[in-house]
Amino acid sequence: MDLYAELILEHAKRPQGAGLREPFDAEVHHVNPTCGDEVTLRVDLDGDTVRDVSYDALGCSISRASASVLHGLVVGREVPTGLAVQAAMRTMLTSRGTDAGDEDVLGDGIALAGVSRYPARVKCALLPWMAFTDALGRSAASGTPSDVDYGGPTIR
């Protein structure tokens, strides 16, 4: 089964950066309504740099691994880079197996490429990434709801 790459299981078992931390600029809560997966995610910005992403992910191994991968890929990077990584991840995950992902951009994240062949699981992997862009949007507008439409799940 190409879904559960060793690296994914490793991230799911020992997620990087898990837990909610202070301080933070914005916090969002996203839900995957088909299965009840939930993530609460905070971003802490230092100017244009993502100083920290902290999160509490209640979900399947794919969504937890994806949150862990996200933490590894965006913390310490500039916001535009973080958004570019998000876009690359989204493209790969929704490619139905046609985009294996660029390791230079997605690092460990390419281990999630197999998810794109399981349409029912794509949302699981996308969940933390949609929460991340939503949180960035909210923090830019200093805590008020974002008017940026990332096409992500609605916030409950």
């Binding site: 089964m1 879904l3 559960y4 088909t34 299965c35 009840g36 997966d37 979900g59 399947c60 191994s61 794919i62 399981y118 699981r121 699981c124």
Partner: peptide, 19 residues
């Protein structure tokens, strides 16, 4: 997580509901 249970079973051809 139930999703993971269902996925492994699905790999064996077993269709169950998860969620």
């Amino acid at each position: 997580h139930a999703h993971d249970v269902g996925q492994v079973l699905d790999d064996d051809g077993i269709a169950v509901r998860v969620g």
